[in-house]
C-alpha cells in the first residue's frame, strides 16, 4: 500500500503539472475541432470557419447542400480570414434550408445548418431586392412617396408593413450577433468538462479495481 501511494504521488505530480498547463490552454479555448458559422447578409450568405478564435481556416473547402434534397449546390474555398460568401441560392429562396460543410483537411470537418426561416425575408423573388435595401432607405422613400407615387400606388407604409420591415432589418442585424454569442459559448472545453472527464476516469479505475479484486 505504501508503494502504491508513492507511485501515485509521483504520477499525480506529473498530472497536476499537465492539468495546470492545460487550464492555461483551456482559457484560450483551444480545440482540435473546426468551427463553422454562417449568416445572411443582404443577398449573400457569409460563412466563417476557424479552428480557434484567432486561427481561421485558410483555403478550406466549403460545400453548400440543400438541406431538404441533400443535393450539393455549390462549393468554394475560404479566404485567408477563413471567410467565404455566396449569393443566396434559388433553392433557399424557395423555402429550403441549407447545410454548409467545411472540410479543413487532415480529417477536420464540421457542418452548420441554416434554417429556411433565415431566408424568409428574401423568400419571394420581388421583395428579395427590397428587403435588404429597406434599412438604409426608410428615411428617403416615405418622403417623396406621398407626392409623386401617391397617385400610382398605396400612399405610405401601413403600420403593419413598417413593423415587418423593422423586424426584418433588426433580424438581419442581430442574427449574426446572436449566432456569434452561441458560437462563443461552445467555443471549447471548459474547466467543468476537464474535471468531469478526470472524475469519470477515476470512477472507471475504481470499478476496475473493485472487480479485479473480487476475481481470485
Amino acid at each position: 500500500m505504501k508503494q502504491l501511494s508513492f507511485f501515485l504521488r509521483a504520477r499525480l505530480a506529473a498530472i497536476l503539472l499537465l492539468a495546470v498547463l492545460s487550464l492555461c490552454a483551456a482559457v484560450e479555448a483551444s480545440a482540435h475541432r473546426v468551427n463553422i458559422f454562417a449568416w445572411v447578409e443582404g443577398d449573400a450568405v457569409l460563412v466563417e470557419c476557424s479552428f480557434r478564435r484567432n486561427s481561421p481556416v485558410r483555403a478550406g473547402t466549403v460545400t453548400v447542400f440543400d438541406a431538404v434534397t441533400g443535393r450539393a449546390l455549390l462549393e468554394g474555398k475560404t479566404s485567408d480570414k477563413g471567410r467565404f460568401s455566396f449569393p443566396v441560392p434559388p433553392e433557399a429562396r424557395g423555402g429550403h434550408g441549407l447545410r454548409l460543410r467545411i472540410s479543413a483537411g487532415e480529417g477536420h470537418q464540421n457542418e452548420w445548418l441554416m434554417d429556411a426561416a433565415e431566408f424568409a425575408a428574401l423568400a419571394p423573388a420581388s421583395p428579395a431586392r427590397s428587403a435588404p435595401a429597406a434599412p438604409a432607405t426608410p428615411a428617403a422613400t416615405p418622403a417623396p412617396a406621398p407626392e409623386e407615387q401617391g397617385a400610382r400606388r398605396a400612399p405610405a407604409l401601413t403600420e403593419e408593413e413598417f413593423r415587418a420591415l423593422v423586424d426584418a432589418a433588426l433580424e438581419s442585424r442581430l442574427g449574426p450577433i446572436r449566432r456569434e454569442l452561441a458560437a462563443l459559448r461552445d467555443d471549447g472545453p471548459s474547466l467543468r468538462d476537464v474535471i468531469g472527464g478526470l472524475g469519470w476516469i477515476m470512477g472507471i479505475v475504481g470499478a476496475g479495481l473493485y472487480f479485479a479484486r473480487r476475481r481470485p
Binding site: 498530472i15 499537465l18 490552454a25 483551444s30 482540435h32 472527464g197 472507471i204 479505475v205 479495481l209
Partner: peptide, 30 residues
C-alpha cells in the same frame, strides 16, 4: 491488477494532454 491505477492515470494524462497546444512550427497542434 497492479497496472490498473497506472492505466487510469495515463488515461487521464492522455485525456488532458489534448488541451495543451504547442505553438511551435507551422500549425499549432496539441
Amino acid at each position: 491488477y497492479d497496472q490498473l491505477i497506472g492505466v487510469g492515470v495515463l488515461s487521464a494524462a492522455f485525456f488532458v494532454g489534448s488541451l495543451v497546444h504547442v505553438p511551435v512550427g507551422l500549425a499549432s497542434a496539441h
